[in-house]
Amino acid sequence: MIVFRSVCKTYKLGLLKKTTLAVDDLSISIPTGSVFGLVGPNGAGKSTTIRMLLNLIRPDRGEVLIDDSSVSDGSFLRDVGYLPENPYLYDHLTLRELLQFAGRSCGLSATVIAQRTQELTEQTGIAHALKRRLRTFSKGMRQRAGLCFALLHDPSLVILDEPMSGLDPLGRKMVCDLILDLKQQGKTVFFCSHILSDTERLCDQIAILHQGRLVHEFDSDDLAEFRSGERCLEDEFVAAVGQDTVQKEMPS
C-alpha cells in the first residue's frame, strides 16, 4: 500500500530563491498488487512525485508512506526497483558488470545474479550485448538495460518513469508484457507515461496530474469502460487538463 498524504513540494531555484510549486496537496493511495499510472502534460510534477516516493527529495508538507512506514527511513528500498527517465548508466561498464553491481548491492549471491541476468536480458532482448560497454548502447538498449537493472533483485514494488520512451513498437510491446507479467506475479507497479493507449490497457488506476495538482482519478470501473470503448481516455484527459487550465485563468 502506497499512500501520499497531502504532499506539497516547492523548488527554490537560483541565487534569488525563486520558488516554483512542483507538487501541490497531492493525496493518492495505491493498493498493493495493482498497476498505477500517473499521467499528465510535461512539467506536471510526475517525476517529482516519483522522487519523493524514492526519498530522493523530501516533501515540504505531508508524508509519503509505504506499507504504513515513512519512506524517509530508507529500509523499503530493498523491495523497490526504479527505472528513471532516460537512464544514464555508467558508461564504461559492461552490461554484465552493471547487473552484477545491482545484484551485489541488494545482497544477492553470485549464482542468483547470473541466473536473473540471463532471464531478464533474454526477456528484454539484449542478451547478446552482455559483454558490451554501456556507452555503445543505443537509447532503446539503454532503456532495456535500465529495466534489467531495476528488476534484477525481483522487487515487489516497481517504479517506472516513462518506461516506453525511446522504444520501438516491439520494445513497447515487450514493456507492456513485462508490466502485465509483474501484475500477474502480484507486484505493485507505479509508472508514469505520456502514452495514453498503453496506460489505459495496463492500469488498474490512473491519476491525471496537472501543474502539480491531482485533477482527476480513474478507478478500475472507469478503466473497464475505456477498454470496452465506451469512453475515450484521451478525450477525458484533454478535457480534464483543459478545464483545470480554464479554472486557473478565471480569477485573473
Binding site: 529500509s75 528500498l77 523497490v80 526497483g81 526504479y82 528513471p84 537512464p87 548508466l89 548491492s105 545482497g107
Partner: peptide, 9 residues
Amino acid sequence: TIHLVLSKP
C-alpha cells in the same frame, strides 16, 4: 546516475 544507485538499498 545517483538516482539509480540510491534506488538500491
